[in-house]
């Protein structure tokens, strides 16, 4: 008996358990295995990416760590650096390496039209749990929109870096996580509310929008009434939060279970500058706050209707970005 006479279901399962570099070597074993490699699914990998690092030269966000080729494809142990004139050939090679693949989180950062086409073709027969875009320029944002148009049902997250024309963000389809990195140009409240109603989670790493007390209340109302589990993390000046707290009816001596206006104090302000409040069906956690007048420092404002998971997750994921 030889391996190729084993049940098809077994061989397909086997080919999902070998790495991509092993698949490269298996291609060289014999003709039958070269064919088996090409015709079988590669299985699931936690992470993958296609990045075009020439972007780094224009934004300074990425160093010129790689010499020569402008496109890098990484999935598990597969790490390919391709020049632009190799992209077409690599499409064919990908089809000889697996018939399909599943990737948990796939990061994309591309800026050229030719690379957008390459990504579209590369992702055919790929099952992606979450596409993760890093948007460092308007051109990259346009590329991301084109890729999303080809994958309309794929959940995605987007990390927005500086130099983006903020108004264009309103054209993004609904996403799982919209993250604003440090340095973003400010957005107006009108655009913020468009983003808030469309996208599931929003994280900001620095102050990006000026909201009035009434607008803050509207944010709480939107999150509170949403059936989906949602989290918004914003950065605000402490002085503004102090003023906001007074408008909300929260006072410095408030203790646990006190009812202050429409809020219930869940955890009063502690020595670490954290206070947790409840408003309707949502919770607010303010981190890095004190009642000092004229403070120029900033605080983190986390609003969620998923208290158990979101506070911890927002601190771990959102702030880490």
């Amino acid at each position: 008996m030889e391996i190729l006479s084993l049940p098809d279901v077994f061989l397909r399962d086997l080919m999902k358990r070998v790495t991509l570099v092993d698949r490269l070597r298996l291609r060289l074993v014999c003709r039958a295995f070269e064919s088996l490699v090409a015709s079988t699914h590669a299985g699931h990998f936690e992470k993958g990416s296609i990045e075009q690092w020439t972007i780094g030269a224009s934004t300074g966000l990425r160093g010129s760590a790689y010499g020569g080729s402008p496109v890098r494809v990484q999935i598990h142990d597969l790490d390919v650096k391709l020049a632009n004139d190799q992209l077409n050939d690599f499409r064919g090679f990908r089809n000889r390496l697996f018939s399909g693949i599943s990737v948990g989180r796939f990061r994309i950062l591309v800026e050229q039209e030719s690379t957008v086409d390459f990504v579209r073709h590369f992702l055919v027969n790929c099952k992606i749990d979450v596409l993760d875009f890093s948007v460092v320029s308007d051109i990259v944002l346009e590329s991301a929109l084109q890729i999303l148009a080809a994958l309309p049902n794929c959940p995605y997250t987007m990390s927005i870096h500086p130099l983006i024309d903020a108004e264009r963000l309103q054209y993004l389809p609904p996403m799982e996580v919209l993250h604003f990195s440090r340095g973003l140009v400010k957005i107006v409240p009108g655009l913020f509310f468009k983003l808030l109603t469309k996208h599931k989670h929003i994280y900001a790493s620095q102050k990006m929008v000026n909201l009035t007390s009434q607008e803050w209340t509207n944010v709480l109302k939107i999150i509170s009434e949403d059936q989906r589990k949602r989290t918004v993390q914003l950065i605000e000046n402490r002085e503004k939060i102090r003023s906001l707290m007074i408008d909300f009816g929260i006072y410095p001596a408030a203790s646990a279970n006190d009812i202050c206006g429409d809020f219930i104090v869940i955890h009063p302000l502690n020595d670490e500058g954290e206070i947790t409040l409840r408003h309707g069906n949502c919770w607010l956690r303010i981190i890095g706050f004190d009642w000092t007048v004229n403070s120029t420092l900033q605080s983190t404002f986390v609003i969620t209707n998923n208290r158990n998971g979101a506070f911890k997750k927002s601190m771990e994921d959102g702030l880490r970005r």
């Binding site: 030889e2 391996i3 077994f10 358990r17 070597r25 060289l28």
Partner: peptide, 26 residues
Amino acid sequence: CKTLANKINGKTVEEMREILQLECDF
């Protein structure tokens, strides 16, 4: 299946041929 995958993983092409008892026909 896991047993056979473990035998193959990380091996050279020649080692794979030996494990799988296959001749190169290229």
